[in-house]
Every structure is written in structure tokens, then in C-alpha cells.
Simulated assay, not measured.
Amino acid sequence: MAITDAHHHVWDLSVRDQSWISGPELAPLRRDFHLTDLEPQARAAGIDRTVVIQTVTVPEETPELLALAAVSDLVAGVVGWTDLTAPGIADELARLRTLPGGERLRGIRHQVQEEPDPHWLTRPDVLRGLRAVADAGLTYDLVIHPGQLAAATAAALRLPDLIFVLDHLGKPPIAAGTLQPWAQAVRQLAAMPNAVCKLSGMVTEADWHEWTTDDLRPYADTVLDSFGPQRLMFGSDWPVCTLAADYAHVVESTRTLLAGLTTGEKTEILSSTAARVYRL
């Protein structure tokens, strides 16, 4: 079964610093990660297409990712960044689509997890920007922590025609081994029909050095039960995942988590949901 990797990154530190990579724990990420590094690993794991995701909140990155997608037979979609609060966001989204690879722009993402306001997603200027994203026919990826799930649910309720894609299950406390209050909050988001979830980022929310697939299972089962296979998609979160596991291990762990599902349900999570949501 061919797999779509709906969440990975690339960066070149000679082009732009990744300021979020700081401290000794993240030191292994402080180097370049190119698409040429990912391709052989992805092909070996049965990946036939990917979606590359923004990492920094600067306007220059999105055109670079689009240009990369334009010449790649692996990258099928781009989730970029633009300032949601800018008065000219609609024009900027239209401009991005005129650039090389612009036809592969599939969504927008902002580092909401770094915003100190837990209600940032429901600010009037942000909601206006999200409306522009919806009007452009794009999706919106949510990179948030559990305390921001309520605001995400409120935004999804106000914008029913915008598909919200929850990255990394909303970052549950896997290392702590606790489910609540994350599980209740994520179920409330899942009650919104325009919300989708990525089965991604779990290994770096677990204990990086001692995690097992069984540690991930309660969290994977929660989103599977809440969203269902048709609103769940796989993402590797490469290269961030390499802090806890190599690419092949992430894919294999995901396959193990899905082993009890039907072939059709596995296909939804490993390929069809991403194709449908991101129009790949």
C-alpha cells in the first residue's frame, strides 16, 4: 500500500536560521535537512508523495517551498505561512499561487503554539484572515498545545467551510502517560465536521529515549475513535521525529498502531484522507 506522508519539513541553515532549534536537547536538528536526504528514506518506507510544512514565520519561506515542490516528483503539496492578520492577506494568497509551484499551495499554518494568548485563534483579525484562507479554497493547519484546543474548536465552529487540520494530535502529554484534559478537549474539536487530525508527532511527545508503540496507543486510539479513519492522516514529522526515532521506525510504529483496522480504514489514514483534504 502506497503511503502519503502529510507532514514533513526541510531547511537549510545557510539560507535561514531556525531560531526554534535551541538548547542541547535540540542540537541534533541544528544542521541542514534537504529533500534529497528524505527521498531515499521515504521511498524505502513505501511513501509515494508528501506534503511539506512551514517551519518559520517569515514570508520568504513559502515561495521557497513552492519552488521546491515545482521540481519534485515527491512533494505533492505545500502548507506555507503568511500573516493572517495582514489587511492584504487575500491578495497575498493569490500572489503565492502565481509563483513557481503555486498550484501546489494547499494550506496555511502559523506557530500558534508560540502565541501567549490562548484565545489567539478567535481574535477578530485572525478570524478575518482565516476567512480569507477559506475563501481561497485552502486548509489551515493547527500547531497548538492542549490548552489551545478550546480556541481551535471555537474557530472551527465560526468557520464551518474552512478545514482545520490538527497537527500532532494537539501535542498530548504522552511522556507523562496522562490522557486528560487533552482527550476531552480533542474530542470536542473532533465533534466539528470540518476538523481533521494528523497521526503525527507522537514520538517526540513521548520519552525520546524509552518510548514504545504501546505508549502511543492510547493517544492514537483516542483520535481514531474521535475523528474516524476518514478524518485521520499519517505524517512523519521528519526531521523533528529523528530526535526520538528514524523515519523507518516512525512508519513501522504507525503500521503497528493501525494493524487491527480493515484494509479500507488503513488506506484512508495512510493515503486517502490526505489526498482528499489537501486535494493531492
Rank of each mutant, 00 (worst) to 15 (best):
D5Y: 14
D5F: 08
D5A: 15
A6E: 05
A6Y: 04
H7V: 09
H8S: 03
W11L: 05
D12A: 07
L13F: 12
L13I: 11
S14Q: 13
S14L: 03
Q18Y: 13
W20I: 11
I21P: 04
G23V: 07
P28H: 09
R31W: 09
T36D: 14
L38Q: 03
E39W: 00
P40N: 14
Q41A: 05
A42H: 10
D48Q: 08
V52D: 00
I53G: 02
Q54T: 14
V56P: 00
P59Y: 05
E61D: 10
E64R: 08
E64S: 14
A70H: 08
S72H: 07
D73T: 15
L74G: 10
G77W: 01
G80F: 07
T85R: 15
A86Q: 09
D91M: 03
A94Q: 13
L96P: 12
G101M: 10
E103D: 14
L105E: 05
V112E: 07
Q113M: 13
Q113C: 13
E114F: 03
E115L: 08
H119S: 10
R123T: 03
V126P: 03
V126W: 15
V126R: 07
L127K: 09
L127T: 11
R131A: 13
A134G: 06
D135T: 07
D135M: 10
D135Y: 14
A136L: 08
L138E: 09
L138F: 12
L142E: 10
L142N: 08
Q148P: 02
Q148H: 15
L149C: 06
A154V: 09
R158T: 08
L159S: 03
L159N: 09
P160L: 06
L162V: 09
L166G: 04
D167P: 07
D167E: 09
H168V: 08
P172K: 11
P173S: 04
P173E: 12
T178H: 09
A183W: 00
A183M: 03
Q184V: 14
Q188T: 11
P193G: 06
K198V: 05
L199E: 09
M202H: 05
E205K: 13
A206N: 06
D207W: 05
W208T: 14
L216V: 05
D221G: 04
L224E: 01
L224H: 13
D225R: 11
D225P: 01
S226P: 02
G228D: 02
P229N: 11
Q230P: 00
R231G: 00
G235F: 02
P239W: 04
T242Q: 05
A245C: 11
D246L: 03
Y247N: 04
S253Y: 02
R255G: 07
L258K: 06
A259E: 13
L261R: 12
E265S: 12
K266Y: 01
T267V: 05
I269L: 03
I269P: 01
L270H: 07
S272H: 10
A275L: 13
R276V: 08
V277S: 04
R279N: 15
R279P: 03
